[in-house]
């Protein structure tokens, strides 16, 4: 058994190293220079391109209107994979809250809602409460920035949602969150389901071409359709078509899903 696990580890490492040998060098993304010689029209002839990453690098900006090529792959070219990941997260959240929700002692609805700052809620010091409140605002702002600018700068729905969910932990340790866990969980799971439903709904709107096709890109500038040029440029907030909308949906799903995990586990572990 030990030998088998060791052998499989060596095999996986060997495959990864073979994959690394085929990567572009760090800082030199342009693999085949001939492909990038003419910077005019997008390459429609796939035969001109050596590998898939060359195609993304050459056509990603002009086809999707997104300056962040990682986001263009995650939410446009491979959006169906993202739907699978989001579904996995949804199932994980459902099963974890099922496991831990039975452990929460049901003691009837508690009267106090959100505790005010400086009231020493639950015996927590005022320094912790107020500091957590200040940090909460900063972290949530950064998370919203990551989600909204997912198609322009590094970030996107998953990253922004995870950053915002770490702010929920701050709320929990400072007792600023409402103590009625049933109500909290109901609200959070509503918004989590809304995020996933929004993702699938946007996918179905573009079904004239294919499921999850980017039907808004390079169209009406008022509907996220502003076209951008190839090469380094700051980009526009209203470009990239459905990409910002999908990013927003995923951000909502990840934030509320991870928050549900934290809230249910925290209340199950809390002894009163």
């Amino acid at each position: 058994m030990r030998l088998a696990s060791f052998l499989s580890l060596v095999l996986i490492a060997a495959f990864l190293f073979v994959g690394i040998l085929r990567l572009h060098p760090v800082g030199e993304p342009l693999g085949n220079p001939d492909v990038f010689k003419d910077r005019g029209d997008a390459i429609t002839d796939i035969k001109n391109v050596d590998t898939m990453d060359d195609y993304y690098l050459r056509n990603g900006q002009t086809e999707t209107g997104s300056n962040n090529l990682v986001a263009s792959v995650v939410f446009d070219y491979r959006a169906f994979d993202t739907l699978g990941e989001a579904t996995v997260l949804f199932i994980v959240v459902s099963s974890i809250s099922m496991l831990f929700f039975t452990m929460i002692k049901r003691k009837g609805p508690e009267t106090s809602g959100v505790s005010r700052i400086g009231e020493f809620p639950g015996g927590v010091s005022r320094v912790i409460t107020f500091g957590s409140f200040l940090l909460y605002i900063l972290i949530i702002t950064f998370g919203i920035y990551l989600v909204v600018h997912g198609h322009l700068s590094p970030g996107g729905g998953f990253q922004g949602g995870a950053v915002m969910a770490s702010a929920t932990a701050l709320l929990l340790i400072s007792s600023l969150m409402t103590r009625n866990v049933q109500k909290t969980k109901k609200i959070f799971s509503f918004f989590e389901s809304l995020g996933l439903t929004l993702f699938i709904g946007i996918g179905f709107v573009g079904i004239g071409v294919s499921f999850l096709s980017n039907f808004l890109a390079n169209g009406n500038p008022l509907l996220f359709g502003k076209a951008i040029a190839f090469g380094p440029n700051p980009g526009y907030l209203v470009s990239a078509g459905t990409l910002p909308l999908l990013s927003l949906a995923i951000g909502m799903e990840v934030f509320f899903g991870l928050s549900i995990i934290l809230v249910t586990m925290y209340h199950a572990a809390k002894d009163e």
Binding site: G27, V70, L146, P154, G155, Q159, A162, V163, S166, A169
Partner: peptide, 16 residues
């Protein structure tokens, strides 16, 4: 040069 992965690692790995 992988800031996307760095943000995800900081949020999920180091905090959550």
């Amino acid at each position: 040069d992988a800031p996307d992965v760095a943000i995800a690692e900081a949020g999920i790995g180091a905090a959550l």
